[in-house]
Amino acid sequence: MLAERGEATAGDLASGLGVPANTMSSHLTVLAHAGLVSSSKSGRHVLYRANTARLEPLIGRLSTLVAKELKAE
């Protein structure tokens, strides 16, 4: 969702996913510490962006693992 939007606030993402904004903000902070998202301040808001360079290899690896699991069933 964040990669599709380009950038968004925690509140924007939370409302789109139906979760509390403070919960989303906490999760985004963890993702930021892991280097999977980056953030910048814009006035009172913090804008988050997906770090596609870090996410693409992770997504590729997860896709491989899921494909192996599906073949095993």
Score class of each variant (00 low, 15 high):
residue 49 R to F: 05
residue 24 M to E: 01
residue 64 T to Q: 10
residue 50 A to D: 12
residue 62 L to V: 15
residue 51 N to L: 02
residue 41 K to I: 09
residue 18 G to I: 07
residue 39 S to I: 00
residue 63 S to H: 13
residue 1 M to I: 08
residue 26 S to R: 13
residue 69 E to P: 10
residue 13 L to C: 04
residue 15 S to W: 07
residue 39 S to C: 04
residue 14 A to C: 05
residue 50 A to T: 14
residue 45 H to F: 06
residue 63 S to Y: 11
residue 10 A to D: 01
residue 60 G to K: 13
residue 52 T to Y: 05
residue 30 V to T: 12
residue 52 T to M: 13
residue 28 L to R: 00
residue 17 L to R: 06
residue 45 H to L: 07
residue 51 N to A: 04
residue 36 L to D: 01
residue 28 L to I: 02
residue 32 A to S: 09
residue 69 E to I: 15
residue 67 A to M: 03
residue 21 A to Y: 13
residue 66 V to N: 11
residue 73 E to N: 14
residue 27 H to L: 09
residue 23 T to H: 11
residue 34 A to T: 05
residue 32 A to C: 11
residue 57 P to M: 02
residue 10 A to S: 04
residue 39 S to N: 01
residue 4 E to L: 09
residue 62 L to M: 15
residue 25 S to A: 13
residue 9 T to W: 03
residue 13 L to A: 01
residue 8 A to D: 08
residue 5 R to M: 02
residue 33 H to P: 01
residue 57 P to Y: 05
residue 53 A to L: 11
residue 41 K to V: 07
residue 52 T to R: 13
residue 46 V to M: 09
residue 31 L to S: 02
residue 18 G to R: 06
residue 61 R to A: 12
residue 11 G to H: 07
residue 38 S to H: 05
residue 39 S to Y: 01
residue 37 V to Q: 01
residue 39 S to M: 02
residue 30 V to M: 09
residue 8 A to I: 08
residue 41 K to L: 09
residue 51 N to E: 05
residue 68 K to G: 14
residue 19 V to G: 03
residue 16 G to F: 04
residue 31 L to R: 03
residue 68 K to M: 15
residue 3 A to C: 09
residue 9 T to E: 03
residue 11 G to W: 06
residue 50 A to I: 12
residue 33 H to Q: 11
residue 38 S to I: 05
residue 23 T to Q: 11
residue 72 A to P: 01
residue 7 E to N: 12
residue 71 K to W: 11
residue 33 H to L: 08
residue 36 L to Y: 07
residue 43 G to T: 11
residue 37 V to K: 00
residue 21 A to E: 15
residue 64 T to L: 13
residue 60 G to A: 14
residue 31 L to K: 06
residue 50 A to R: 11
residue 70 L to P: 02
residue 6 G to R: 00
residue 51 N to H: 04
residue 29 T to I: 04
residue 68 K to N: 15
residue 59 I to P: 01
residue 41 K to D: 09
residue 48 Y to A: 00
residue 31 L to N: 03
residue 44 R to K: 10
residue 33 H to K: 14
residue 39 S to R: 02
residue 72 A to L: 10
residue 33 H to F: 07
residue 24 M to I: 06
residue 60 G to D: 12
residue 9 T to P: 04
residue 19 V to T: 08
residue 34 A to I: 08
residue 73 E to Q: 13
residue 46 V to R: 05
residue 62 L to K: 15
residue 72 A to W: 05
residue 13 L to Y: 02
residue 63 S to Q: 13
residue 19 V to F: 07
residue 42 S to R: 08
residue 61 R to L: 13
residue 16 G to S: 12
residue 65 L to R: 14
residue 37 V to E: 02
residue 41 K to F: 08
residue 71 K to P: 03
residue 60 G to Q: 12
residue 45 H to I: 01
residue 57 P to H: 01
residue 2 L to E: 01
residue 11 G to L: 11
residue 55 L to D: 12
residue 59 I to M: 07
residue 49 R to I: 04
residue 44 R to A: 10
residue 31 L to T: 03
residue 51 N to I: 00
residue 10 A to G: 01
residue 61 R to V: 08
residue 47 L to G: 00
residue 27 H to N: 06
residue 66 V to F: 14
residue 52 T to K: 10
residue 34 A to R: 14
residue 4 E to G: 03
residue 4 E to A: 09
residue 32 A to G: 07
residue 32 A to T: 06
residue 24 M to Y: 03
residue 4 E to I: 04
residue 42 S to W: 04
